[in-house]
């Protein structure tokens, strides 16, 4: 049998431990969205530029896609290098910038790649 006061104390201790272990962090979703938007705002022109370069140089087949990944990851690494330690202040998960824009950048890349490839090498 336990004394009710003891139980209360135990509960309080547990609560304190929980409070000690977990410090909830406060994120403002609008600001996080703005930050993500700023990153994609940089990524898409880079992808367009990469597509234009690939089209002018006349890459075709698998090599063009490899060039896309090269351009994308070069940009991401440059971005991470520039913002170095501050990155965790602005994003919940700093690694997500490596993968989030990969899909959204691909279609503009392909568009400009085919466009310039056709204009220069086909016609």
């Amino acid at each position: 049998m336990l004394h009710p006061q003891q139980i209360q104390q135990q509960q309080q201790q547990q609560q304190q431990e929980q409070a000690n272990s977990v410090i909830p962090e406060h994120y403002d979703p609008e600001i996080i969205m703005r930050n993500n938007k700023a990153v994609t705002f940089c990524q898409i022109p880079i992808c367009i530029l990469g597509g234009a370069i690939a089209g002018v140089l006349g890459f075709s087949g698998l090599f063009g896609f490899l060039f896309y990944f090269f351009v994308y990851f070069t940009f991401c690494s440059l971005f991470v290098l520039r913002e170095n330690k501050k990155l965790s202040l602005y994003f919940i998960n700093p690694r997500s910038i490596w993968f989030d824009g990969l899909g959204s950048g691909l279609m503009p890349y392909i568009l400009f790649w085919t466009f310039l490839y056709n204009i220069i090498h086909i016609y």
Partner: peptide, 28 residues
């Protein structure tokens, strides 16, 4: 198919060129 390619590709470009660049706090 060129039309479809343009359609999918231009979504990203539109988001940058036509969407408000980065809206200020009040607008948001």
């Amino acid at each position: 198919s060129w039309y479809f390619l343009c359609w999918f590709g231009s979504e990203g470009i539109n988001a940058i060129l036509l969407g408000e660049n980065i809206p200020s706090m009040d607008q948001q």
